[in-house]
Amino acid sequence: MEARFNAGDRVRIRVDYPAGHFRTPGYIQGKTGTVAGVHGTFRNPESLAKGGDGLPRQYLYLVRFDQTHVWENYNASPQDKLLIDIYEHWLEPVCQS
């Protein structure tokens, strides 16, 4: 299985509240960021939390966001960043214009 995204790709975080446990913070859902790195594959925590086997393994990405994009009123420094680990099934491709 190959990683669907590579470093530098623009991605949008899906908006979803699946029943049970998930590890994509609400504050980042719907936001657009850039893949900063690919951590490799890990068991899916949403399945593990229900006693499942966590398979198929999911690619986990480090995604970088501009703080000024995440928080409307962020005015400290335009270069500040937020970096979050997100599993592949939460990422949507963003058309490069």
């Binding site: 590890r23 994509t24 913070p25 980042i28 951590h39 890990f42 925590p45 986990l60 480090l62 703080q67 400290a76 420094s77 270069q79 500040d80 960043k81 937020l82 970096l83 979050i84 680990d85 997100i86 599993y87």
Partner: peptide, 27 residues
């Protein structure tokens, strides 16, 4: 982040890029 770091006694220059890592997963 800069406000919280200030409460810890750490005042960062505006030129410094602050990177907050939210470790939500296996890393």
């Amino acid at each position: 982040p800069r406000g919280v770091l200030r409460e810890f006694g750490l005042e960062l220059d505006p030129d410094v890029e602050v990177r907050v890592y939210d470790s939500t997963a296996d890393i």
